[in-house]
Simulated assay, not measured.
Amino acid sequence: MTINLAKSTTAPVMLVTGAAKRIGAAIVFAAHHQGYRVIIHCHQSEKEALTLAKKLNTKRDNSAEVITADLGLVNCPKQLEEFTQAIITTFGRIDVLVHNASRFYPTAVGDIKLQHWDELMLTNAKAPLLLSQALRPELEKSRGCIISLLDIHGLQQPFLGYTVYNMAKAAHNMMVKSLALELAPSVRVSGIALGANILPEDDSDQALSDRQKRQILSSIPMQRLGVPEDVADCVLYLAKSGYITGEIITIDGGRSLTIAGGLA
């Protein structure tokens, strides 16, 4: 785990996990533009995270920092404590925790391995819960909030061939609702259920086939994919909305209205 220290100010602080690229980076950029100091968490994309932080610090000095860590550290209480302290020490406070880091790949029944379960549950359910618990005292101090990025396929319409991922996101969805009750009134907890807001990179193990892409696009009433900025706008809305907690906002261009599950 690596961390760079920055000078403390009174500006609020947002931590975004998995924030080096794509949706995470868009959230960081939008939050920074609104005056937040940002902590950019990454694991394997440190180069991109450092480039993003450098760009933001050029706009406003000592306003963006990078923490590099494998979220598997939540399995070790000592490492989780060190990670938590590193986060707090960065700017001296935490106001908004955004759970964005996620793994996504197919797990066809018959080929599911324990490794798949451990990996998908870790990023999509276990790490968000244990990190939320670890940062709870600091979030209570700031009367802050937790915002989780979910998936419409973890709510009611499962994605065919992705059983473990669907289960993990469903667990994360229930975490949001459970923590909203348990942490109220000091900490607000809400989620954003995504549809086809951004597709996996073609050269990754998360890549979708051309047929899957065509089917997804044809199922969206808005007839287009979403953009990361749609999600970033919603994150900032939830961060400032003091009377919203336990809410799951769907951002999918209407796709959840047209699918009954089983789309692959």
Rank of each mutant, 00 (worst) to 15 (best):
L236R: 13
N4S: 13
R60K: 12
E48P: 12
A64R: 09
E81C: 05
Q156H: 10
L56A: 04
L257R: 15
G35P: 00
I27K: 13
I220Y: 07
T9K: 12
S8T: 05
F29M: 11
G254W: 00
K7D: 05
I39N: 06
L160I: 01
I251L: 09
D203W: 06
L52F: 10
L129T: 06
M174K: 11
N62H: 13
A180H: 05
K55T: 11
L114H: 13
D151W: 05
P12N: 01
G261S: 08
D118Y: 00
G191N: 09
I39S: 14
K78E: 12
K55C: 08
A20W: 07
I216N: 06
G191A: 08
L257K: 10
H153D: 07
R22G: 11
V28M: 01
A168L: 10
L263T: 11
S186F: 04
V164C: 03
H153T: 14
F83P: 11
Q79I: 03
L71P: 07
G18Y: 06
D95C: 03
S190G: 06
L135G: 04
L217N: 06
T10W: 03
Y36A: 02
V74E: 15
L194G: 07
H116A: 04
I198K: 14
L120H: 07
L80V: 06
V164R: 06
H116F: 03
K177W: 00
P137T: 00
A26T: 00
R255N: 01
H32S: 12
R103Y: 04
I216T: 09
H116S: 04
T250V: 04
E81W: 01
T123C: 04
V13S: 09
E81M: 04
K54A: 15
P128A: 15
A19M: 10
K213G: 09
P200E: 00
L199K: 14
M121G: 09
N4V: 04
L155I: 10
I248S: 12
A19C: 11
A69H: 12
H172T: 03
L238S: 09
K113I: 14
T58S: 15
C76L: 01
A168I: 13
I112D: 13
K78R: 08
G242W: 02
G246I: 08
L129M: 09
G262Y: 02
I259R: 13
V235C: 07
L181W: 07
T84W: 04
V227D: 06
L160P: 06
I67E: 13
V227W: 00
T107L: 01
L80A: 13
L225F: 14
